[in-house]
Design a protein around this nucleic acid. Sequence first.
DNA 1: GTGGCAAGAATAGTGTTACCAATGATGTCC
DNA 2: GGACATCATTGGTAACACTATTCTTGCCAC
Lengths: 238, 238
Amino acid sequence: MSGDADRHTLHNRVLAVLGPAIVAGEYEPGHVFTLERLEREYGVSRTVVREAVRVLQSMRLVRSRPRTGVQVRPDEEWSVFDPQLIRWRLAGSGRMAQLRSLTELRAAIEPPAAAAAARNAPREWREPLVEVCERMTAAGQEGDQDSFLRLDIEFHRRILRLSGNEMFVGLTGVVAEVLTGRTEYHLMPRPPRAEALRLHAHVAEAIRDGLPDVAQAAMRSIVGEVDEALSEAAEPDR
Amino acid sequence: MSGDADRHTLHNRVLAVLGPAIVAGEYEPGHVFTLERLEREYGVSRTVVREAVRVLQSMRLVRSRPRTGVQVRPDEEWSVFDPQLIRWRLAGSGRMAQLRSLTELRAAIEPPAAAAAARNAPREWREPLVEVCERMTAAGQEGDQDSFLRLDIEFHRRILRLSGNEMFVGLTGVVAEVLTGRTEYHLMPRPPRAEALRLHAHVAEAIRDGLPDVAQAAMRSIVGEVDEALSEAAEPDR
DNA sequence: GTGGCAAGAATAGTGTTACCAATGATGTCC
DNA sequence: GGACATCATTGGTAACACTATTCTTGCCAC
């Protein structure tokens, strides 16, 4: 799914523990590590710790200075769009909060992306989008949840790609994580609501037919509906 | 401006050359470095090269495997929201393309952010927003371009913060870069247009008065206008 | 021969250790 | 209260052992 963050190197294993711990707020902002402490704690060599810290630093989770050590930064300064950081948050206790903020982000991005797709998509990719939508609908009606999720992700991914804006494309991972997360935590109506399926079809057809306003309005209905569903499930985590 | 990426460490200096070079497309996707080659090329030790590569890897610019080397990934796989990557692009030849895609992103995000701010902003921060807007207007009318830019950034930053959504907050850096970039490359009307200033005031007052729809509509006018201005200046780079 | 597979060699990243240099926070002296 | 010594901690170098992955080779079956 993600590329190479999963390679079983030592510094990746250190990262996979240290990163989530910091993200979960187990260390106050301002808390300082020393490399030596981390070396002992994880039983690894200096090089490994340094490389792990370097990555955390590039995510702006920590800063590192001589004589002071490695200091945890306040969360307002983190690179919250970093895919790895998002995954750590979704895996931890902050998952509902993260899911909510990401859903609001989707609600902002996807309607303009759909409009852009209706304007910019190359001819040859318009009809295939409708086909993906149809297969998704079929899977939903048959109750095949795995295929439905896979095709739902594929549908939204294609729209972001067809928008022609690299920043929108860069959010495909986020959308995939949100949809997967909603399914995993049973925040997805089963079977999918008929109205939602129809709205997806409207989006696909409007993009195919080059109707930006229609595509945007239909997409707004989709993500707005999702937003409400999530707000209803709003409760303190756990 | 950014935190600690500017500390004059050796690996940062290597990063500051290698990163922009890759981002500028000086190496085909698939191109492989070896650590040894980089060591010699930059005249630094292995540790330094390894840490620089580790950062590039976390940005998904490269992947690193034994027996193969360090391989440049195709640009669709890059973490395009990484602030450092954005800065590299804005500094290089891709700056107009990057500016356009970021402007479209702003156009998607800021109106919903303004609406959210009108709903969620704490009482005590509403009036100050209007004050910032007034000082910005004054600076604009006096022709004080530096102060105007600074206050314009401050204005948009506050709205994103007041939205209460951490993902929106995470885009403050992007907005700052875009506004600064537009000023530097003289894509900003001077003096600022009176209508634009009035729209900013409408946004601030609508947020103060808790009117999400008004705030959203006014913000949409602001970013829509900007979008047009940028499209007019659309020419192949250089 | 040709295709497929297994064993082994070659090659580059990965991990360890030891040591010295540079930095900047902290306290001290005047 | 400003200049300066101090010292802990990161930053950087070097040399080497380990290990994963790819490529080659050679065998075997068809």
